[in-house]
Nucleic acid binder design. Structure first.
Length: 325
DNA sequence: GCGTCCAGGTCTACC
DNA sequence: GGTAGACCTGGACGC
């Protein structure tokens, strides 16, 4: 395979505005699932002393290095972004990069309204206290979202992480900037060019291989929308379009969509039934639509925030609310 | 140790 | 318009 490494240099910096309260640390360094840290943009990014080095791809697949840090305080937050690349950017590209980072950091989310809403639910009140300032992160592009959604299917946390890391290691790209090395997401073009046999054996993807490849091809041939296009659609429309991709069912569409959603699976449905006091009177899989309906009625536009705050606070919630996980 | 079972979802093929 | 059964890999469990 022999991954070439690109050396990038600084092109521009930008100060992003964000609505308080904002915790950069809790947002980019989510400690989900009992001490396990989840990545912000790539599993190979570096986070050290409040500074994040990560990388995205632009529309033309060109890798871009990001150095992001928060200055100021929870109540007077500022985010400083430095951008690295092999070549300079057009104004439009600069704008695209800033928009992606803004969205991935959830900077413009009206979190104060969510916190007021959360007052009405004891478990949310607790989570807000525990994770004060945390935002929901969006995805930089459709393909990285698709990779996560598909590798989450029918797999333990360990297996998901292994598949993702193999995909990034084998087919992603190494970039070096600010003396830090980061591996970015594979481009859909690269994955579309790899044979199914190779992809399957190199990344242990199992039957998910076909799904990943079909999605990569749909993106390359522009049959799939961009994240931005999905965001501009109505929520139901975005979900419908996502579900028309091979390997993307309801759960994956809800993981990927930039709109609010509640991506319950057979593992998390048990937790939500306990918190929402829903009686488990059938198989866990059959409980999923019931829990989803309940979440939609109770939480409306805050569903994704509710989901993320609960899932990221299970250590404390399970203790306090005696959850059987 | 070695087989067997089945999972944190989706598709296909049947009603 | 709804649902059983197959599907990769690999961890859990029975012997």
């Amino acid at each position: 395979m022999g991954m070439r490494r690109r050396d990038l240099s600084k092109v521009f910096s930008y100060e992003l505005e964000c609505l308080p309260p904002y915790s950069f640390d809790l947002t980019v360094n989510k400690r989900t699932r009992f001490g396990v840290n989840w990545y912000w943009i790539t599993p190979y990014e570096k986070y050290y002393k409040g500074v994040m080095w990560s990388g995205i791809r632009l529309h033309n697949d060109k890798p871009v290095g990001l150095k992001v840090k928060a200055t100021g305080s929870l109540q007077k937050p500022k985010v400083l972004l430095e951008v690295f690349s092999e070549a300079s950017f057009s104004n439009r590209e600069e704008k695209e990069i800033v928009e992606i980072v803004d969205r991935c950091l959830g900077l413009k989310d009206d979190i104060t309204s969510f916190y007021m809403f959360a007052e009405g639910f004891p478990y949310l009140k607790q989570s807000v206290e525990d994770l004060y300032g945390m935002r929901v992160c969006s995805f930089p592009d459709l393909f990285s979202a698709v990779i996560l959604a598909i590798t989450l299917q029918m797999a333990s946390y360990g297996r998901t992480e292994r598949m993702i890391k193999l995909l990034y290691r084998n087919y992603g790209e190494k970039i070096m900037f600010d003396d830090v090395e980061v591996t970015v997401c594979p481009s859909p073009t690269r994955i579309a060019d790899v044979s199914e046999e190779e992809l399957k054996s190199e990344c242990n993807l199992g039957y998910r291989t076909t799904f990943i490849k079909a999605c990569a091809e749909a993106i390359v041939s522009q049959k799939a929308p961009t994240i931005k296009e999905l965001a501009d659609m109505k929520a139901e429309e975005a979900k419908r379009v996502l579900m028309s991709l091979k390997g993307i069912g309801e759960y994956s569409a809800e993981v990927i969509t930039p709109h609010t959603s509640f991506p319950v699976d057979v593992w998390s449905v048990k937790i939500f039934c306990q918190l929402f006091k829903i009686k488990i009177d059938r198989s866990l899989r059959a409980m999923i639509p019931i829990v989803k309906r309940c979440a939609s009625e109770k939480f409306g536009r805050w569903q994704k925030y509710v989901y993320t705050y609960i899932i990221n606070d299970l250590d404390k919630l399970s203790e306090k609310f005696k959850l059987d996980i």
